[in-house]
Design a protein around this nucleic acid. Structure first.
Lengths: 158, 158
DNA sequence: GGCGCACGATTGACGCGTCAATCATCTGGG
DNA sequence: CCCAGATGATTGACGCGTCAATCGTGCGCC
């Protein structure tokens, strides 16, 4: 079971490579479809959605830039660029932080909240249609197990 | 087993959503690491690698633009942009097609071939280290099964 | 109290991906 | 034979992601 600890000496087999390639391609296609559907339904990109989700769940619908970056695991600079674009569209607002004038707070606007609210249900449906409906309960459990193993492995070799 | 045909009426469960999010995040992190390693080892991006791999495997180390696009499942325009950048770096060359003067052929250069050759082994090692080593043989089989189900499902609802 | 460094955040440059528009060439129906 | 539509490919615009550089502010330490 715990094969992350043992150092494997074998080379990558072609079967493993094929599974990796399939994982790469299939998840890319999944992302592509969900992104297209999300954009069609709401005009939001996956990045927009992640930002809005984090803000919608935050107390006061606002977060410090750095907290937001941590919450969605983005680099600061990526967030800065993205938030700049979202601000232009009126989805969020940037206000300077009261307690630390270096800091910025990102605040969900009414428009942003409404658009996000309207996006969630169709997005969930799309995930269900493209992903959820493809797998049996047993496959779900297996995938969950696999992802835990991968996450653990990635964290161990950060 | 064949649950792709049956229309599911349930909504997406939170467990399913969590698995999707984990799949999304984990594969993103995997891609990020492999891309960073590949770039460090060879100066190639994953896109470069895909193009070079297809060309290296092609007869005469050359392919029509459209064949190359099909081989790696890219949009024409994406390929055109990418090939333009790769040409500047001397990895490939574009020559006009003899039999159809609308067409273009993409040819692997000596430099491109050499750089690709030197990139393959470290790249395979990185895949093994970050992905292969994380999973047991049983998990591999399960993942293979899951990916087949997903692929089938995606193809069915193209 | 002020100096230096850490920290929060932004910026610019550049590669990448998609969409819509464009251009040249090929081809088949009249 | 010719021209209208299909086909192969490219382009431009724009959003996105990363890296390195930058900028202002806070703060510990003497």
């Amino acid at each position: 079971m715990k094969n992350t600890a043992a150092v494997e000496r074998r080379r990558l087999t072609s079967a493993e490579l094929a599974v990796w390639r399939s994982l790469f391609d299939t998840t890319a296609e999944l992302r592509r479809r969900l992104a297209a559907q999300l954009a069609a339904d709401s005009g939001l990109s996956p990045g927009d959605y992640a930002v809005l989700l984090a803000l919608a769940e935050a107390a006061g619908r606002r977060l410090r830039s750095s907290e937001l970056a941590d919450a969605i695991d983005w680099e600061r600079s990526r967030l800065s660029h993205h938030v700049g674009r979202m601000e232009k569209r009126g989805l969020i607002e940037r206000v300077e932080c009261a307690t630390d004038s270096r800091g910025a707070e990102v605040v969900l606007t009414e428009d942003g909240a409404r658009i996000f609210r309207n996006a969630t249900a169709p997005h969930a449906r799309a995930i269900k249609r493209h992903f959820g409906d493809a797998l049996s309960p047993a496959q779900f459990d297996a995938l969950d197990d696999i992802l835990r193993a991968l996450t653990t492995h990635l964290e161990a070799t950060r």
